[in-house]
Write a protein that binds this DNA or RNA. Sequence first.
DNA 1: TGCATTTCTTAATCTAGATTAATGCAAGGA
DNA 2: TCCTTGCATTAATCTAGATTAAGAAATGCA
Lengths: 179, 179
Amino acid sequence: MDNLNEIFRLDQNSKSRNFPKGSILQHQGDFPVSSYIVKQGLLKSYTIDEKGKEHIFMFAPEGWIVADIESQIFEQPAELFIECLEDSEVIVFNGDLTDTSGLNKEHLTKQIQLMLRRIGTLQRRLIMMMSAPAIKRYEYFVKIYPNLPNRIPQKLIAAYLGITPEALSSIRSKLLKSK
Amino acid sequence: MDNLNEIFRLDQNSKSRNFPKGSILQHQGDFPVSSYIVKQGLLKSYTIDEKGKEHIFMFAPEGWIVADIESQIFEQPAELFIECLEDSEVIVFNGDLTDTSGLNKEHLTKQIQLMLRRIGTLQRRLIMMMSAPAIKRYEYFVKIYPNLPNRIPQKLIAAYLGITPEALSSIRSKLLKSK
DNA sequence: TGCATTTCTTAATCTAGATTAATGCAAGGA
DNA sequence: TCCTTGCATTAATCTAGATTAAGAAATGCA
């Protein structure tokens, strides 16, 4: 993994900070919106809908970047909450990803690679969400994040898959029985 | 709108080509995968699931770029079909978006802006798909693409929203009655 | 213009997953 | 250790949207 500090326009003295499990780094409605690079630990970004239900946009383990890009690019208050699922070490990048001043060609090229990867992942996720039943989405989740199922509670996996914990529980029991 | 020809690494002599309505520019399984810049007309990119059902990933009117970025970045055969919904003028960009050689800083910066915008749009769409009922997704679609509803058949809107044409029809009649 | 094909609507039934609720379990704190 | 609190499971009921089917309206083409 390239050093993400290098690729993005970080202050010389931007240091990583430690946050205990449960810390909320960003609330819905915050403005302006920061970006976060995870050095150690695990974050989630999510929304709460008008019924109070949580929907997880993404998990971010070590080496991942988390940002509410929709809010940044449209210069709106944050849509997403960002929260630590474990004690985490995070670089808080004040300023958004749209500011690329002071970066050289190599940096920009690497940023493009990261963004294309993110777009590809979102494309897959959206297509799965539209076309695949919950059981397929669960199997895909396990394949892509083999280490996460043991690291986070089931109800968070359910919130990521777009189903209830009860539905996930019955899917899992079906999968166990079918073996 | 910046000239997209400039921003991307196009051959000097890459010319736009005309395709009649119904032309399929890319089939699922094609390899390698091209990118497409729409000069005039309207394209759709979509998958067909194992039950034969169509799911529209995006519509691309004039000025939009269409590419199966997931397949490009992971170097896999195309996942998406790409088809003309109207007679269209399209620049076929042989080679994928991951190749940025020969571009200068300004080009790369503009590419990053376009990609962030795409990520922001996908973020919103995914969150809506997870958390909003079909009627809200329809209202959002109409808000974002005010000219498309009169330009494409309803069943395509349904395939974009992730519901059946029948469900969309009943949503629309509910909206009409409530006025 | 007329005919064929596709699209849209309406309605009856069906189903994946939501909701509600009750129970058992594991983990952390005093 | 007990006690609380959050998590997982199971089961009964409910609902948004799917499926099926049939007719009406619109569109394209000879």
